[in-house]
Amino acid sequence: MTEAAANKKTVFIAGHRGMVGSAIVRQLSGQADVTLLLAGRDELNLCDQAAVEAFFASHAIDEVYLAAARVGGIQANNQFPADFIHDNLAIALNVIGAAHRHDVPRLLFLGSSCIYPRLAEQPISEAQLLTGHLEPTNEPYAIAKIAGIKLCESYNRQHGRDYRSLMPTNLYGPGDNFHPENSHVIPALLQRFHLARQQSAQRVTIWGSGAQLREFLHVDDLAIAAVNVMNLPAATWRRQVTPQCSHLNAGTGTDISIRDLATLIAKVTGFSGEIVFDASKPDGAPRKLLDVSKLHSLGITQTRALEAGLEATYHWYCDHLGTDMRR
């Protein structure tokens, strides 16, 4: 073995085909000191404990990015709550447990801002975890993600592990889900305005008043943050967390109204018709903004402005469709 090969670290990215996992692959693939270890669902079922144990036993792994999850929109969460809590609990239990049993030095668990109470104070600090009721529509998923945080926290406390957790705000970017029924707000609006322009529609109607405020982070900025968090010296990480609150938020620290977001997406897609807001439909929470002061104090901030990120995501969407409908 050459000296260069010996100095490389083996990094397992669980969920490398998803939006977050693939962004982390893009971030790490050019690093000379990294050997990526990847296994798709057809090769490794993360819900199968025996299979995960055998996988970890057969590889000398230095770091794990746990980006794998069963995900979906409100409809899927409501229709399959047992699947969401079972699969996400199983993934966290199997991967984090196997990492400990096979002496993996460092792990990063990636979750979601849905872990916080439905009526959390704004902006939402890390300390608000478990201080109130969760949003009912995704409670099973959120509970599984909270369990992942607590698994890392507990292995750290009991066994001295260095397992970290990062909770991102609403994500968008390449690899997003553009399903017409299950997608989140940015992919849903990109697709609707794209199709409206393609069909020469005169107007697009959007549910709600448009006044609700939301925060959005490009997935490649999350990947940069994840790698930076993983690479922090242990002492630096521990200064930002406590044994009972061992995760950090990831976001931009700024938000935008859905009305202004829709106007921006209309511009990006070239839609010039009327945008109508149906105020008879629910807005959801009036605001959802993460307090990211701890992460930003480490010098870890986003690099992409929202409009530039939307442009890049729209280009990916057009290419993914196989039809370039850009202006």
Rank of each mutant, 00 (worst) to 15 (best):
A235F: 05
T242R: 11
I300W: 06
R106D: 00
I124W: 03
R327H: 09
T252E: 01
G160F: 04
A188V: 01
E53F: 09
S165I: 10
H100A: 06
P123W: 08
S29A: 15
G97A: 04
G253I: 02
N77D: 02
G21L: 07
V276D: 07
F193E: 12
L110P: 02
C152A: 14
S297Y: 01
E153R: 13
L28M: 15
L290P: 03
S165Q: 12
A226T: 00
R106Q: 13
S280I: 00
G208V: 07
D162A: 08
V25L: 12
C47F: 00
A312W: 00
E63C: 10
H133K: 13
A120Y: 08
T323H: 03
R326V: 05
A98M: 10
D103Y: 06
L134A: 11
A235I: 06
G148W: 00
V95S: 04
F80M: 08
E139M: 12
K150N: 10
S58M: 03
Q244C: 10
C245Q: 15
V34P: 07
R238C: 05
L28P: 08
L261G: 03
E311K: 09
G15H: 09
A60H: 13
S246L: 02
M1L: 09
G251L: 05
N177H: 12
V185P: 01
Q122C: 07
G73R: 05
